[in-house]
Design a protein around this nucleic acid. Structure first.
Lengths: 139, 139
DNA sequence: CAAGGATCGGTAATGATTTTCATTATTGGC
DNA sequence: GCCAATAATGAAAATCATTACCGATCCTTG
């Protein structure tokens, strides 16, 4: 498991605000929106501006320490990435629960498509959403 | 090949505005944003409001006659879907050129992940982007 | 301790999308 | 063809997430 310190070293100066943002992201465990994370930080007493939350999350993504998805409303949701590998998730639309899924098949497929397409710098986004067992039961 | 008429019948009343929006989407051939489509319509003399463009595109997506992706800025891009099958595309980040790709592998993978996950109503989004041969050459 | 640069945060700006609501157009029944 | 019921339209205003500004603040290094 990685420590917040590892992430902080990657994104510039170590400040109280960034420390709490990274900590909150790790504590949350799953995908969260910037706004929600900011609310959580404020609730627990941290004095951090929304702007700083956005900047810190963007820096983490840039450094490869966080994954991003878009929810249906277009909002970006962030999740701390403990391991350096590119990873895909299955995300519950109701409660936000996320679980990593086996990604090898898609990775291979994407690489092959890139190869035969003639396109350069091919990137891919894969998002799986559904209703987790608990949410399915309670609906 | 499908006719605009087929699409119009799926989304409610047949109006001059919807006809021109669907026509413009088909003519465009690839992925377009609502704003760009609206501009194109205005340029060619059609009197259509921007929100009618949005509503028509949303209705097409709802009816399964259009695909949607998000570009890097979060804007939604729409493409007319001539055939009823779910389809994935490889999209050029520079010029917007889009080409359908073989999707069977991902479809199968997504179905299997859904099966073993315990999640219900699993949906997936797969987006491939890159630089097409022409744009790669001119950069 | 001072200077320089990174960082912060409140606020205003941006940009896409949606809502509101009064007006207009389409459709099914006569 | 005519008419009322109702869906559709559009201009402007409202949302919502995200970003840009910019003056104040905090580290860090010398």
């Amino acid at each position: 498991m990685s420590e917040p310190a590892d992430d902080l070293d990657l994104i510039g100066r170590r400040t109280a605000q960034r420390t709490s943002v990274v900590g909150a992201l790790i504590d949350h465990g799953g995908f969260v929106g910037a706004r929600a994370l900011h609310d959580a930080l404020r609730t627990q007493g941290a004095r951090v501006g929304l702007n700083t939350v956005y900047r810190t999350l963007a820096a983490l993504v840039e450094a490869g320490r966080a994954d991003v998805v878009r929810d249906r409303g277009g909002e970006r949701l962030f999740r701390h990435r403990a391991f350096p590998e590119h990873q895909h998730y299955l995300l519950c639309r109701a409660c936000g629960l996320s679980t990593p899924v086996d990604s090898e098949t898609v990775e291979t497929w994407a690489a092959r498509v890139a190869d035969i397409s003639g396109f350069a710098e091919v990137e891919h986004t894969v998002e799986l959403t559904g209703l987790c067992p608990r949410c399915r039961a309670s609906s």
